[in-house]
Design a protein around this nucleic acid. Sequence first.
DNA 1: GTCTATATGGTGATAGAC
DNA 2: GTCTATCACCATATAGAC
Lengths: 226, 226
Amino acid sequence: MARNRVVKRKQSKADISRDKVLAAAVQVFSEKGYAGATMREVARVAGLSAGSLYYYFSSKELMMEAVINVSINNVSKTVLNAIAVQPPSASYSEKIKVAIKAHLQGILSSGANAVISRYLWVQIPDEVKRKHFIAQSAYEEFWLNLLIAAQEAGEIRTDLDVRLTRTIMLSAINAALDWYRPDGKSVDEIAETFFKIIKEGIVISGESDGPALTAPEAKKEATALK
Amino acid sequence: MARNRVVKRKQSKADISRDKVLAAAVQVFSEKGYAGATMREVARVAGLSAGSLYYYFSSKELMMEAVINVSINNVSKTVLNAIAVQPPSASYSEKIKVAIKAHLQGILSSGANAVISRYLWVQIPDEVKRKHFIAQSAYEEFWLNLLIAAQEAGEIRTDLDVRLTRTIMLSAINAALDWYRPDGKSVDEIAETFFKIIKEGIVISGESDGPALTAPEAKKEATALK
DNA sequence: GTCTATATGGTGATAGAC
DNA sequence: GTCTATCACCATATAGAC
């Protein structure tokens, strides 16, 4: 889109500055929130004057939209690509593992970018929100289909609601943005633990009140507590 | 603390107004973010004039702090209480299930309150953040101890890092704040699915490449993708 | 307690020189 | 392209009447 000379040449001076501004915007928005971020601070971080920003983004809202767009497809492209290179012989379990790891790497490497679409969601102008929502939905659909296929292949339990499971899985992984620190566990270790828990759970096999079922069964559980 | 006539009488007119302001603040902060929220709007929602707010909170920052404090201990009290009434005979698996359900109910019923401590975290003034952090840590410690006890009792796998598992579990449940809608699955259903996945995983028992282990074993997994 | 001013400062955005 | 001004507005917070 913008800068319709997409095919040829390397970055012009304008493109370089635009990227610099965008990077600064990502940082400031993620630290201060949409309303809390000021054009003056974005400019300062970018090394420009406040007025100059308007050469690249004609409003704060459009700047926000650009910031979000950068992050949107990053993760989904990473994951789709990781799945695509899997051999057809790969089990769904393996595919899911690869997808989990790719998703985790995707969100954590895009850093502040991904933080924005989570923390700032509620404060984002409606029109920006709408566009982001559409791209997000398509990606979530991919995960749903992956789980459904795995279920039909007999690899995962049928007593779990697929949509709910998908939502829980994705949101659980996304939540790593809240607590991941570069000086802690490695992304690989985290992805590994995620996969183990999602795949097999935390309980020791054969333990106590009922293992994973193929068909709906244990139904009168829960309902404790209020 | 504040209003040191805690023990006696019912709410004075001032207390009622204070609560009204606090509730309005919760709503507006959660919708607009810390910086995006205006005292004028809080006042409007509370049915007061902007200036009147300062009778109860001498600054926007202190108002924010009050809002956060309301939500902090709600969830942890709910969970601790739910665990306390469990019979000593209850397995750790049962305790964990009860804790999951209580935590989920806690965050979802406190609604916008809990949203604040997640969405607005990055925008919160440092001093407020610090206090919130301490209370949060104590609660997370409780979960850690629960998992450690379960592990020592031989109920859960020892090949999972306990801290990481705790973090994943809690953040996964908290993430329900992002996607829960009152017109969708019931809280009970969601808690049930959470527990099933966390306990047993999504894979059909006995399936493919290795079930849950008691001891560290399968170690050369993963490392695919980059 | 709650109001109506209002002081004071910061914000997004624009205009026009270079 | 980037700057320096500057406008018009809205924010938090205060003062003092009721």
